[in-house]
């Protein structure tokens, strides 16, 4: 570390920034995907009464649901932990 640029703080900001700033949204996205597992967008079959093609949306099974809840919980817990670290330092 020199006195004009604090490299020690810099790499910490980059690493923690990537883990929380990109990692948590990714985890959130994972939860979203677990809740909405991919399925055929427009399944074969007759269209609905309105003329719109009926969309079939598979729902998450119990395991997927539990994992999704877990991902969202980890996101929330990380935010809470981050805030408590900052409050603890000041």
């Amino acid at each position: 570390m020199n006195s004009w640029i604090n490299l020690d703080a810099l790499w910490k900001i980059v690493v923690v920034g990537l883990l929380t700033g990109a990692g948590l949204p990714a985890l959130f996205a994972l939860g979203l995907r677990l809740l909405n597992p991919p399925g055929p967008v427009a399944p074969p079959g007759p269209s609905g009464p309105t003329g719109e093609p009926a969309t079939y949306r598979p729902t998450a099974g119990p395991v997927g649901y539990a994992l999704a809840v877990l991902s969202f919980a980890v996101v929330l817990a990380s935010i809470g932990w981050g805030i408590s670290v900052i409050v603890g330092h000041s």
Binding site: V14, G17, A22, A29, L30
Partner: peptide
């Protein structure tokens, strides 16, 4: 640049992970 880089990584990940989720719930 740091924030921009983090946002690029986050955007790529989020898009990749939810690629197969249909439009409305996404």
């Amino acid at each position: 640049f740091i924030a921009g880089g983090v946002a690029v990584v986050g955007t790529l990940l989020v898009r990749r992970i939810t690629r197969e989720v249909s439009e409305r719930p996404r």
